[in-house]
Computed example of a mutant assay.
Amino acid sequence: MAAAETGAGLRALLFDLDNTLIDTAGADRKAERQVKDLLILQHRYGEFVAGLVIEKFKTKLEAGHPYSSTKIDIDKERTLFMELAIQETNDHKAAQDLATQCYLKWKKTRLEHIYIPDEVKAMLRELHQSYKLLLLTNGHSAIQREKIDVCKCQEYFDQIVVGGEYQEQKPARSIFQECFRLLGVKPDACVMIGDSLKTDIEGGVNSGVSATIWINNNNEMPDEESAIPDYTVKSVLDIKDILKNIKSKV
């Protein structure tokens, strides 16, 4: 176990992955469009029906499987979600080969559009000269590790923590405590940076980090129950000046 460093000062930055460092939502939209085109152009689906298949598939992805765990074959599970979406939409038994074709098209397209932009890479390299960097992402291990690998995140972070590999995910205090332990720092020496008020900001606030920075790239309006971030920006590229301000206060 790493010994916690003592002394005042900002020492570490915790970054979320999806829609903070990478445009997962944009990659999803491109993947969905490709599946719709496949259904329309190759399988004679109407635009509306193809869109309905996508919506049902998205709903199933978001809900997950009640028995999902790190031991499941995530590709088989998601192929089943696609098969059920097609079946429910067309009101007949979906051919498994069509579901497999659609899912593989979705997965391939999505991964092709998941990457850390060059300007964000440059920022991470610059920040790494002054801070320890840790990537903290929620989600199933296989899914998140796939994105982490394709983005080569290991090149930019001292530690990578995937929520699905622990008993609790963000915003649980326990996973933040694990991050502090891995970095060998105290909570008040860290800043949490992410796009979710519910997981990133709430988790950071509850775990006692020095400050939280909310990446509000969709002009989201917080509700009354949302955690309140210390700072709000539209892009992760806007955090450097804020970090200088935080560092001067810590």
Results as ranks from 00 to 15, higher is better:
K76C: 10
S130M: 04
L13P: 03
K30W: 06
A95E: 13
K244T: 12
N90R: 15
Q167L: 15
Q154E: 15
N138D: 13
P222Q: 04
Q169L: 04
D23S: 06
R181N: 14
Q101P: 12
F48D: 13
E55C: 12
G163K: 03
S248E: 09
L38W: 03
G204I: 01
Y166H: 14
K107W: 11
G184R: 01
A31H: 04
P171R: 02
F15Y: 03
I215E: 00
K60G: 06
A172F: 08
E47D: 10
E165D: 15
K76Y: 14
E155H: 07
Q34R: 14
A27R: 04
F157E: 07
F48T: 13
I143Q: 05
T89L: 05
A12Y: 03
T20V: 02
E202W: 04
H92Y: 12
Q34T: 09
N218E: 15
G9I: 10
I148A: 05
Y231T: 03
A27F: 13
G51Y: 02
Y103V: 10
P171F: 02
F180C: 07
D188K: 12
I246M: 05
K36V: 14
I74T: 11
K170F: 07
E88M: 07
V161G: 02
R145I: 02
Q34C: 12
V53R: 01
Y166N: 14
L104G: 11
I40P: 05
I40W: 08
V49Q: 13
